[in-house]
Design a protein around this nucleic acid. Sequence first.
DNA 1: GCAAACTCGTT
DNA 2: GACGTACGAGTTTGCC
Length: 870
Amino acid sequence: MAFRAFYALPAENFATSTGQHTNAVHGFVSMLLTMIRQQKPTHVAVAFDLDTPTFRSLEYTEYKGGRNKTPEEFYGQIDLIQEVMKAMNIPAITLESFEADDILATLATKGEEAGFDVLVVSGDRDAFQLITEKTLVLYPKKGISDIPPMDAAAVEAKYFVPPERYSDLAALVGETADNLPGVPGVGPKTAAKWLNLYGDLAGVLENIDAIKGKVGDSLREHVDNVTRNRRLNQLKHDLELPVTLEEMELQAPNREEIENLFDALEFNTLRKRLFDLFAAQEEEVAPEVAAFTRVVTDNAEALRGFMESGQGAAIALQPAVVDSEAVGLALYRGSEAAWLDLAELDEETQSVLAQFLADEQAPKIFHDAKAAMHLLIERGFTVAGIKDDTLISAYLIQPDRRSHDLVDVVQYHLKYAVPVHQAKKGELDLGLTSDLAEPTLAQAQAIHDLSAYLATKLVEKHADELAATMELPLIPVLFEMERAGVAVDVDRLHELRAHFTTQVDQATNAAFAAIGHEVNLSSPKQLQVVLFEELDLPRTKKIKTGFTTDAESLQDLLVKTGHPFLVALMAYRDAIKLRQTVDGLLKATHSDGRIHTTYAQTVAATGRLSSLNPNLQNIPVRSEEGRRIRDVFMVGEGYETLLTVDYSQIEMRIMAHLSEDEGLIEAYQNGEDLHRYVGSRVFNVAPEEVTSEMRSKVKAMSYGLAYGLSSFGLSKQLKIGVDEARKLMKDYFDRFGAVRTYLRSVVDQARKDGYTETIFGRRRYLPELNSSDRRLRDIAERAALNAPIQGSAADLVKVAMLKIAEGLEAGEYKSRMLLQVHDELILEIAAGELDAVQELVTREMGQAADLLVPLDVQPGIGRTWHEAAH
DNA sequence: GCAAACTCGTT
DNA sequence: GACGTACGAGTTTGCC
């Protein structure tokens, strides 16, 4: 691992002021911290090779021969790593005449015997022989985060033999890195074929004469290689180690030693990461979980009994997931729990479970029900009767938190650490005590307990009604939208990709020609050198790393200097952004020819949905070129057309409603062109005398107000003086005074209450309104201004979606909602249903709330999203 | 190799 | 000295 770190990080970038290279140390410690954070081990040890002879090199002098000499810069870094381990109170183990992997093998065996789950991290494939039900191997390819631990199934998938045969396979194939030649002409495929035919290596050698062909001859000729390889690649499991398992228990680091050591190594960001990690760990409290009875529900009768004995009490459910697939399901109902192996259900049990899951009257509690629905439907189960979702509850209680992972939520509210399971794919016998069942059952129990605890919290925060009438009912609606996905024209996507690539290339060439050399146009850092040093253009706004090269500043520079490089650079930025968008869409297109986004219901603090994997809420629309991407979203087979319906000026209307400003309300009630109307009042001219320049000024101001725009911001946006902007705002507020009163009162009220509230009662808590830090307070004030407006709009759209879903179901329409883009809904319309569905959608959107101003909705029809725009 | 910074698309 | 909300995603760079 240290060696990998050494080559991953450029040595020349990592040296102390005294010249000591630290890249391997930095990389190793960085990886170790990541691993501790992700895997949360209770015990940790690190094994090192020595550079003295081992029993392998004594038996076979060429062992690991032919390797390049260790680079100069690596020397000494191993000692430094060992010093860091000492300061972290992590044993660093070496053993004369043995290799690190033998130490790991011994530790794995000892750990298993002591009842531990073991995770071996090694860059040596020989470690695969250690894999068992209790031991997994992390074999880093690129990085150590984001790679699943190798289990038996993963080894089989890759090498076609189980882990206990891996060493046999390696002996036949050979290992270049260790200078262990195998049988020429034999690769993993052939080796695996033989091993599976004859059981193991001994079997292959017994039947050596039966193997035909050139490879058979080759094997017979090199059989000595094979037996030697097998002897050498066998790891030792029974070494006398200088460290006990107890001594491996992960402890807090020795702060003083770390400080001194990291001072010397000049590690500053790592120091923070290390202390942050252990600070977080110290907070964790031991679980205080009530005991419950486990019920094995491996047959229909047992499952039915479990269901019935609960007498209709809500059941918490938690799927166990391996490789994005539900392999097990834990059910918990207070003092009693059940565990189901979803892969092994007999027909009758499957049917009992299916009936329960689909029963609207059987109340269920999930943490992230929508995700569970996707997992379960792949197993043939539909889910109804979602009584509670602790993910939603946690979000409504603290909408500003970014993540509401079960682990975090339980830790925060119930003050205990819920166990997390290691995914183990090959483990098909999922008994009640399996590594998967225990933690999943504990999670289900935690969800059950959370649900009860958060229910009172919801009431305290006045979010119970919102949960019951809006967020929970929305779950199945969003689920259906995600499941449906939207059809895309893949050929068109490829054409667009080629088109934008041409533009990227042209812009790149033009940019290089303009400055006479190449540069990475995607690197702000390099662009700064070109713009502000080579070309010596006027400096732009300061940012942390120098001067910004953002689009707005580039445009300013272009106006000031007219330099052709700027033109090319801006064209490059536009084109590469569009190509990235297209690439993302291509990557996200499923085999059904559709893109299935995921709506995050618990991310945006204002109550909006967000869209991810891919984000379909930021598909370009403003530029002509970008809009072409909207043409690839098309009506799917079996449907007639797309229908888009969006609210016009929803946030302005909500501001009119909330402020009760008579002028604004009158304008909307009379159906006037709002910006023209406002313009005529602000500039004191007749409506027909409002010029387009006046109109765009008040339009920018109107929208900006809902975001907490300052006169400075307005002046910048409109490219007018601050004085003029200030006057514009004054004139605006003179005419629409209630708006100013409202905006002020929102912030004042929020400062008193600690939260803002939408029309539908959605709260956002903003404690920083009373911060002594001016910057934080300003940010909180703008959030307080915006949250009721953006949030009410989000609520309104959600209400409309619920009504539309209801209406579609009641009318037994085949048409369906596909997408939501904050104030716009996109539906796929089945043949003959257009008129009725359009009427339904526009009606429900129009009457989603009873405001002081009318809600205006605009429908559009077309074969593609672009065509359906109006 | 990981995490932060920058940039930019939408509403 | 900063100055418009709410997001997601891709690329580059700093780390020492």
